[in-house]
């Protein structure tokens, strides 16, 4: 419990330097928006709202991120700071439809 409390304190301190939040929704196994523009060299908090009944796994090899988002649930993923470029992401459970790109400018 003590370790969890310390981790929580660290989390609170870290989140005090709040990163800008970008909302992404998953509907009918598609990402909305599918193209996300973010500034270069900036840490961003992605808030992913899975509105489908099925789970989805947000995955991006380029961003080095992977997270299961259960059906009708939300998930938080931090990305960046990143150099300018395009970083594709996809839903591993429905990879044919759930595709998107983070565009860093």
């Amino acid at each position: 419990m003590r370790i969890l409390f310390i981790i929580y304190l660290i989390t609170v301190v870290v989140s005090a330097s709040a990163a800008p939040t970008v909302d992404i929704a998953i509907r009918n196994h598609l990402f909305y928006p599918s193209k996300v523009d973010i500034p270069a060299d900036t840490k961003i908090k992605l808030l992913i709202d899975n509105q489908d009944p099925t789970a989805e796994e947000f995955e991006s090899y380029e961003l080095n991120r992977e997270k299961v988002i259960p059906g009708h649930s939300k998930g938080v993923i931090f990305i960046g700071p990143l150099p300018a470029g395009e970083y594709p992401f996809f839903g591993e459970f429905f990879p044919k439809t759930a595709q998107g790109t983070v565009i860093v400018k």
Partner: peptide
Amino acid sequence: NISSISMLFEGIGQEI
């Protein structure tokens, strides 16, 4: 309990 666990610690419970 994954939905509630995920939202612990301001949304990073699953990672922890």
